[in-house]
Nucleic acid binder design. Sequence first.
DNA 1: GCAGCTACTTGCCAAATGGCAGGAAATCAC
DNA 2: GTGATTTCCTGCCATTTGGCAAGTAGCTGC
Lengths: 197, 197
Amino acid sequence: MTQEKLRKFLQANGLINAQQAEEIARQFVPKEIAQHDFLLREGRVCDEYLFLEKGLLRAFAHDPNGNEVTTSFYKSGQVVFEVSSFFTRVTSQENIQALTNCAGWCITFQQLNALFHARPEFREFGRSVLVQGFATLKGRMLGMITTSATERYEQLMKTTPEILLNAPVKHIASYLGVTDTSLSRIRAAVTKSAGHE
Amino acid sequence: MTQEKLRKFLQANGLINAQQAEEIARQFVPKEIAQHDFLLREGRVCDEYLFLEKGLLRAFAHDPNGNEVTTSFYKSGQVVFEVSSFFTRVTSQENIQALTNCAGWCITFQQLNALFHARPEFREFGRSVLVQGFATLKGRMLGMITTSATERYEQLMKTTPEILLNAPVKHIASYLGVTDTSLSRIRAAVTKSAGHE
DNA sequence: GCAGCTACTTGCCAAATGGCAGGAAATCAC
DNA sequence: GTGATTTCCTGCCATTTGGCAAGTAGCTGC
């Protein structure tokens, strides 16, 4: 179990050098999550900032009628935590659950804050994570407005095909903003037209 | 022209005290934007972090077909800037335009960064602005998935009725993710049923 | 095996939304 | 003022998506 991937990730955007990355990475502890287990449950405060090295997770909330709505998928190489609950220290409306066995590296809010305070370069890094997440969500919002359900499905399959192997259709459907019935039809149509090529 | 509202805003979430607020506020310069003028144009780097004291703005991007899509409305009491462009120093895909005459207080990226560096309390405040924006966008996304266009319209009118007075229907429509034709019908239906009360 | 469960698909029809075009009303330029 | 432009509404019809129910397939426990 080495921290190599974590260190690489810390250095990825050029804000942190190798020496700093190693020192920062030492603050992280290994974390494993078995398939179906939860990283976060609604009603609790998110206190783990997880770099995911391996595996796939799903975040979901409940709509007013109690139906599950998938709000995000996380794959390896990403940071996994619920922004609002983690930073505001407020109970989470969301659950984060492992779709496969997962492994990664974790720090607590307190540790992260201490690091932010002590290390300007990590502060910048942390901001960059937040800003990127923001931009991603904005892009998803724009896609929701400007593209059809079929296009959104194809886009998701192109960028994160592993979801298809590990998440049931209904989870993908609510993420895309359609019912599972509709997504089933969309998949039938996409498969058929792909076969024509 | 006093900075009272800016100072109040800085203190609002309890991270900054009155003395600090006054010192920080002094870094901001007054900014006015005439109706129809732009705070930010696509293709340029956002370099203004604006506290809006008075007025209403709209952010919009273009979809692949060149149609305008409203991505956000900003009303007084909010911070106005394009997160990704401002912090990443990358050209903006978005425009931000004044729907009415606007007035507020502004600092540049360089100033903000210097303040973040010098003042931990302002750093926390800045993070809080980002986190709140994130949470708001997430909520909007969830609404897009779980509620009907009619409900989204009613929600928007409840929280920001001034939009109705200052933005044409098509701008509101693309923000809600429907066509202007549909929104026109939705408005007709809502007005009619409201009249029945 | 069998019963029970979940995931997924599909037919039928309803509801929501879009595309287009026409026309009324307001606004703007001059 | 007049004409041009923009905004908004609405009728007609197509497309997309949803709701419900039936049916198949696979998986699980016993």
